[in-house]
Simulated assay, not measured.
Amino acid sequence: MLWIVGFTFLVLWKLAIKIDGKVGAGGRGGRGRGGVGGKDTSFAKRLAHLLPFICLMMMVWAFYFAPLPFGLDSIAQLLANFAGWLLDFVTGWFGLTGGPIAAVLVLALVLLALWDLCVDGKPDEIAKTAVYALPVLVLVASGPIAPFVLDLIQTINSSTPRIAAAITGG
């Protein structure tokens, strides 16, 4: 079910990019306002800049947590296993584990992404990097909680088609 959500947000992301381009090139005040009401246009432009980012975030996270075929986990779990191994390997030299380091990285990345979004209302490279890195770092930072979260996600994925069939009568 998450694969369908991911592809839906892929289409919405492409549409949002086109809307952002049209609103961004709108010019003076937009639709016949002649420059009057700049605040409405400014809000519309900020919202139009955030819409592709939100669609991108939802698309990436849906694809990350969608179950893979042949009994594999999800892409996020595979990347988290690799990132956790890499962090444990590097921090093991100093007598630390990767979980707390990943938690510090999550906090720093969230703060930097929020700062990036608040500066000009347009997501730049830091915010987009956060979209790709945060799900993996959160799974590494959560340590033993991660399998329970992934089990919950897989339970929801497997029960959603049955619920839809029960509702539609099919």
Rank of each mutant, 00 (worst) to 15 (best):
F9W: 10
P144A: 11
L50W: 03
L79Y: 02
I126V: 11
P135K: 07
A166G: 07
T91I: 03
L78Q: 09
I75N: 00
M1V: 14
N81G: 13
W3C: 00
R31Y: 14
V104A: 13
G92L: 09
W61K: 07
L114Y: 02
D40G: 11
L117W: 08
L112Q: 06
G27N: 02
D20P: 02
G170P: 00
L50F: 08
D120F: 05
A127Y: 01
Y64V: 08
A133G: 15
I19N: 14
P144G: 01
L111E: 02
G92A: 12
A133Q: 09
M1N: 06
R46M: 14
L47R: 09
I17Q: 15
K45W: 11
V110W: 02
R28H: 06
P147V: 12
G98W: 03
H49A: 14
P147D: 13
W85H: 11
L72P: 01
A130V: 13
A102V: 00
V140R: 11
I17P: 10
V60K: 02
P135Y: 01
E125L: 13
G98L: 04
H49Y: 13
K22N: 11
T8R: 00
I126W: 00
M59C: 08
I156G: 12
R46S: 09
F63K: 07
K39L: 10
I54T: 12
D116Q: 04
K39H: 06
L86V: 12
Q154F: 10
F82N: 07
I54F: 13
S74Y: 01
P161H: 10
K128D: 00
C118A: 08
K18M: 11
K128M: 10
L50H: 04
T168C: 03
M57S: 11
F53W: 15
I163A: 10
A83M: 03
L152T: 15
V104Y: 07
L47V: 15
